[in-house]
Amino acid sequence: MQRRLAQLGFLPGNKVRIIRAAPFHGPLLLEVEGREIVLGRGVASHILVEYI
């Protein structure tokens, strides 16, 4: 899982922006490294971020 996220650009130090969230506890649409990635909440909750 870590390796998979790393491939998509979720690496320590990279910036992530939440573009939108699907209703009913649906997935998040994130922007990371200039790409739009959809992450389910389960996965997203395991990513530690610092609010900037």
Binding site: R4, I37, L39, G40
Partner: peptide, 10 residues
């Protein structure tokens, strides 16, 4: 399963 991971195409 860990959940959805998907790239959104333009």
């Amino acid at each position: 399963s860990p959940g959805l991971i998907l790239e959104m195409p333009v």
